[in-house]
C-alpha cells in the first residue's frame, strides 16, 4: 500500500515537472504546447547520449541546458510569433513540432527501445515499513518537491518572478511599467523547456526510451493542467499528486481500466469545478 503511494508520487512528480512547464508557457505566451512531451522525450535521449560518456549527473546538467536553449529558440521562432494568432494555428504548429522532433530522434537513435542505467550512487534500495523501495525513486520525488519549492520561491520572492506573475495576467500593463515582457517570456519558456529536459532525464532510468515516450505522459500532463486550473501553479501541484496516485492505483488494482481513469477523473472535476482546482484564475 505504502509502496503504491510512493510509486504514485514518483509518477506524479514527473507529471508535475512537465505540467508546470506547460503552465508557465501558457501563462506567458498563451500557447498550448503540444510539443512539450517531445521536449521530455528529447531530454531523455540527450541524457542517454551524454550519460554514456560522462555519467548521469553530467547528463542531467547537459540535458536541462540543451533543452533550455531549445526553449529560447522555440520561443523566438514559434511561440512569440504565434501568441496573437488563432489558437488552432498554435495547435497545428506545435503538433507539427512534435512530429519533427520524433523523427529527428528516430533518425539519430532509431526506433528501438533504449534503456539508461540508474546512476550507481542511487542504485540501492531502502526498506520502508518492511518493504523494499529503490533509492532512485525517492530521489525523483525529492526533485519534484525541490522544483515546486524553487519555483514558488522564485515567483514569490524575486523581481523577475514578480514580472512573470504580472505578465501572465496583464502583459500590456506590465510592459507599460518598463518591463520587456518578451524577454521575461523567453526566460520562462527556457525554464519550462529545461524542466521538460529534467523530467525526461530523471524518467529515463525508470522507463524505456522510445521516440513515442512523450505522448502518453503529455496527455496526462494536459489532464493535470486542466484539473489544476489552467494557469495555476499550486493547482498543477495538487492535480499532479492526484493523477499520479490515481494512475498508479489504476495500474495495480484495475489494470483493464487504468488508462481511462485519469480522463474520468478530469470529467468529474470539470463537472464539479469547470475551471479546475484553482478555479477562476485562468
Amino acid at each position: 500500500m505504502l509502496i503504491n503511494i510512493l510509486n504514485g508520487l514518483v509518477y506524479g512528480g514527473l507529471l508535475y515537472i512537465l505540467a508546470v512547464g506547460l503552465v508557465l508557457i501558457f501563462g506567458l505566451r498563451r500557447v498550448v504546447n503540444f510539443a512539450h512531451g517531445s521536449l521530455f522525450m528529447v531530454g531523455g535521449y540527450v541524457a542517454f547520449a551524454v550519460a554514456a560518456y560522462g555519467g548521469f549527473w553530467l547528463a542531467l546538467v547537459v540535458s536541462v541546458a540543451v533543452l533550455a536553449v531549445l526553449g529560447v529558440v522555440l520561443d523566438r521562432l514559434v511561440f512569440r510569433p504565434l501568441q496573437h494568432e488563432d489558437p488552432i494555428a498554435t495547435v497545428l504548429v506545435t503538433f507539427g513540432l512534435l512530429l519533427v522532433l520524433e523523427d529527428v530522434v528516430k533518425t539519430i537513435w532509431g526506433k528501438d527501445f533504449l534503456s539508461m542505467p540508474t546512476p550507481t550512487a542511487l542504485a540501492g534500495t531502502v526498506t520502508i515499513a518492511g518493504e523494499i523501495f529503490p533509492v532512485y525513486r525517492l530521489m525523483v520525488i525529492l526533485v519534484a518537491v525541490l522544483v515546486a519549492a524553487g519555483l514558488t520561491l522564485w515567483l514569490r520572492a524575486s523581481r523577475i518572478g514578480l514580472y512573470v506573475r504580472a505578465s501572465s495576467v496583464d502583459p500590456v500593463t506590465t510592459g507599460m511599467q518598463g518591463v520587456d515582457t518578451d524577454r521575461v517570456s523567453a526566460v520562462v519558456v527556457a525554464i519550462g523547456a529545461g524542466l521538460a529536459g529534467l523530467s525526461g532525464t530523471i524518467a529515463a532510468p525508470l522507463m524505456a526510451l522510445s521516440p513515442s515516450m512523450g505522448s502518453f505522459i503529455l496527455i496526462d500532463s494536459f489532464i493535470v493542467v486542466v484539473v489544476g486550473g489552467l494557469g495555476s501553479f499550486s493547482g498543477a501541484f495538487l492535480a499532479a499528486l492526484l493523477i499520479g496516485q490515481v494512475h498508479n492505483f489504476g495500474v495495480v488494482y484495475i489494470p483493464w481500466a487504468s488508462s481511462m481513469i485519469p480522463f474520468l477523473l478530469m470529467v468529474g472535476v470539470l463537472i464539479w469545478r469547470p475551471t479546475g482546482f484553482a478555479g477562476g484564475r485562468a
Partner: peptide
C-alpha cells in the same frame, strides 16, 4: 510597451489597470 517608461515617462492609464493577482505592495514594486 516599455519604450515610454524607459524614457522617464510614467502613465497612469485610463481604467487604472491594477494587476488583480498582485498585492498593493507588488503593484507598486512593478
Amino acid at each position: 510597451h516599455f519604450t515610454a517608461a524607459r524614457s522617464g515617462i510614467a502613465v497612469v492609464p485610463q481604467g487604472r489597470r491594477i494587476v488583480p493577482t498582485l498585492t498593493v505592495r507588488e503593484n507598486l514594486l512593478l
